[in-house]
Design a protein around this nucleic acid. Structure first.
Length: 208
DNA sequence: CGAATGATATACT
DNA sequence: GTATATCATTCGA
């Protein structure tokens, strides 16, 4: 087990980071409870040149200022007045790259994640959709700026057996306003996620 | 399909 | 300061 360190996040290019985050495990330690999920879908937002990014054109506001800090912190913001969306800030200081976490598979603390989501289903299906991910892991937009090297939120490499050949890239979701940038293949996901994996083997019981 | 729901950015006075 | 449009979405019919 390895906790990802600032040097992982502070590399120049955001696309390899978004791809490499697939299969890593996102942890939260909130209210003295630990929950975790395997990241199965991400989207890259590439700094000031990306029309889909909140930092497009160098926009620097109260909300987006955390994106300009050195990589390795959380950018969590409110969307549609209801949903908290969790992003990882990447790149060196001054370069506002970010990676949105769109889906996770439960890894630890499934019962608590289901309670936060207020769902009764007893299954191991992924939390698909960025707002579901944040809600399941207890991530709220008030926690934006949280250090991912701290003790509340972090990401680990558990050497899970994700075949790299099954990672696909597609256009991003819900960014039609971004013109031609909406067509860029900045979304990363595992192909045929429902059929390929014995998800039960991903629970931490199998990786103590 | 459409409603829910509120912070944020921007363009004004 | 005030007004208004716009959301990196989800849920239920």
């Amino acid at each position: 087990m390895t906790v990802l360190t600032p040097d992982f996040y502070r590399r120049e290019k955001v696309l390899p980071i978004a791809r490499e985050l697939i299969g890593k495990v996102l942890y939260t330690h909130i209210g003295n409870r630990i929950t975790a999920g395997v990241i199965t879908e991400t989207e890259a937002y590439a700094g000031i040149m990306d029309r889909a990014s909140h930092a497009y054109g160098g926009r620097l506001t109260g909300r987006t200022s955390v994106m300009y800090e050195p990589g390795g912190i959380a950018y969590i913001y409110l969307c549609y007045g209801i949903h908290s969306l969790f992003n990882v800030v990447t790149g060196p200081a001054g370069i506002p790259h970010a990676v949105l976490i769109r889906s996770v598979v439960p890894f630890e603390g499934l019962a608590l994640m289901q309670k936060r989501r207020n769902t009764q289903k007893q299954n191991l299906h992924p939390f698909t959709g960025p707002a579901k991910v944040a809600q399941a892991l207890g991530l709220h937009y008030r926690m934006t700026g949280e250090n991912l090297s701290g003790n509340r939120v972090w990401i680990e490499d558990r050497n899970l057996p994700i075949p790299h050949s099954l990672i696909r890239s597609t256009p991003r979701i819900g960014v039609d306003y971004a013109g031609s940038d909406a067509l860029l293949p900045y979304r990363f996901m595992i192909e045929n996620i429902d059929t390929f994996t014995p998800w039960k083997s991903f629970t931490s019981d199998f990786y103590p």
